[in-house]
């Protein structure tokens, strides 16, 4: 499945610099650096869904936006097909945007309230000269609306006249109308009700098949990721701590963070009860990340070396890798907790 990588990300880093206020600068305070994404490498094969999972503040959304250069990466390379996205000039980048798109989390904030659905969905056609006049544009928009399950007659309505799920469909239509190859889905169902979530996921899977799309699917919900991804990458504080085929990662999670993430999800059928790994404390501040392995402050398995040295990423199975000092002991956290 991963024979032909469409997207290749190498050592991508995104650092934000908070410039201190005038007073703070006079007092000799230095600017603050936050590494939102730290030295991340992975690739996504053509036609694949890579699920990117992590809690809020782990840098998963920043990573998605850095790939699209919505937030300019600080260092590292993003290759798409045979182009180096990070090296493109502004006009080249504009042309590239037709091929890589994004679907946003918040169906209320992501649509301009003052523009009609026709204008919103038709904008990519206008920007990239993909239409022959207004009538042609409306026709294409109407066709796209039909594809995402809206009515062509709704083309002149404003976003506030739609429900959350319908708005998300508009966002999907906008992302797909320029016929892209790759889509970053940034928590596209997190803001929706459960029954609507299922509708939208079904739609995204159908469209993927029809348009031969490749997704980077960002979510905090391991159930969603587990359901639809081919491969999954787990992020913690800006780093990928575990990555591999979804069956392998979910069946035999090797990083203690992945294990705790999975056991924290409440299950409808109550299977999660009993063996439960509870993490202590909160996510550390990214302003002052822990030394060594960033997870050591919450890890039940942490030993001295975890506090001192950063673990290297090791292969633990076919296409499955994890970064943890205690992999060698093959000590499953669940077994450890049961003892």
């Amino acid at each position: 499945m991963t024979t032909d990588p469409l997207l290749k990300v190498t050592n991508l880093t995104k650092t934000y610099t908070g410039s201190p206020s005038m007073v703070a600068r006079l007092l000799g305070r230095k600017p603050v650096h936050v590494r939102a994404v730290s030295d991340v490498s992975f690739s996504v094969g053509r036609g694949e869904i890579l699920g990117l999972i992590g809690e809020s503040g782990c840098g998963k959304s920043t990573l998605g936006r850095a790939i699209l250069r919505l937030h300019e990466p600080s260092s590292g390379r993003v290759e798409f097909g045979d182009a180096d996205v990070t090296a493109l000039s502004p006009p080249e980048m504009k042309a590239m945007r037709r091929r890589m798109q994004i679907i946003f989390q918040d169906p209320y904030a992501s649509l301009n309230p003052r523009r009609t659905v026709g204008d919103i969905v038709g904008l990519p056609l206008q920007l990239h000269g993909l239409e022959n006049g207004r009538e042609d544009m409306r026709e294409k928009v109407a066709m796209m609306l039909d594809k995402v399950g809206l009515k062509a007659g709704q083309i002149d309505r404003y976003p506030h006249q739609f429900s959350g799920g319908q708005r998300q469909r508009i966002g999907i239509a906008r992302a797909l109308i320029s016929n892209p190859e790759f889509i970053v889905c940034d928590e596209p169902v997190s803001a929706l009700d459960v029954s609507i979530q299922a509708q939208i996921i079904q739609l995204l899977l159908e469209l993927k098949r029809e348009f031969q799309l490749t997704y980077l699917f960002i979510s905090h919900d391991i159930s969603v990721i587990g359901y639809l991804s081919d491969r999954v990458a787990v992020m913690y504080l800006g780093e990928i701590v575990e990555m591999g085929p979804v069956e392998s990662v979910l069946a035999t999670p090797r990083h203690p963070y992945t294990q705790s993430l999975m056991s924290a999800v409440p299950e409808v059928d109550g299977t999660g009860k009993g063996q439960r790994v509870r993490l202590k404390g909160d996510l550390p501040s990214p302003l002052d990340p822990p030394s060594g392995c960033k997870f050591h402050t919450r890890c039940p398995l942490a030993i001295d070396i975890c506090r001192q040295r950063k673990p290297v990423t090791e292969t633990v199975g076919k296409g499955h890798s994890a970064a943890c000092h205690r992999l060698a002991e093959r000590l499953s956290l669940l077994e450890g907790a049961a003892q």
């Binding site: 029954s195 299922a198 587990g226 359901y227």
Partner: peptide, 24 residues
Amino acid sequence: RGLLASVLRPGLRGQPIRPIRGQV
């Protein structure tokens, strides 16, 4: 029933979901 069927689980991979159609 529809609500329960809409809850995704990794165990359901590859199986089609049957979401509740329409909206509230």
